[in-house]
């Protein structure tokens, strides 16, 4: 499990407040740890993906939920169809 502190160290582009916002909005999930939220590798990769969407694709906060929802649906269907690469 990865703590918020480790996450912020590994991802210099990440601000604590925006991560809390994504948690509150349900874009990112976390478990409750002794000193605040803890994350899985999968959660950390999803945060990296959001940072990529923002940095490379210039997706803003308003469009983010739509993009994530479409990606989640795509991966849901790919899992169901057994498509892995």
């Amino acid at each position: 499990m990865i703590t918020m502190h480790v996450l912020l160290t590994e991802l210099p582009g990440l601000q604590p407040d925006e991560l809390r916002g994504w948690l509150a909005a349900g874009h990112i999930r976390a478990e409750r740890g002794p000193d605040g939220p803890v994350f899985t590798e999968f959660d950390a990769e999803r945060i990296r993906l959001i940072l990529d969407l923002r940095e490379i694709f210039e997706v803003n906060e308003a469009a983010l939920p739509l993009v994530l929802s479409l990606l989640d649906q795509m991966y849901e269907l790919r899992r169901r169809l057994g498509l892995t690469s």
Binding site: E41, F42, E45, R46, R48, L49, L71, Y75, R78, R79, L83, T84, S85
Partner: peptide, 9 residues
Amino acid sequence: NYRRHAETA
């Protein structure tokens, strides 16, 4: 890496 997680169970 995100994809590799997302495509598994």
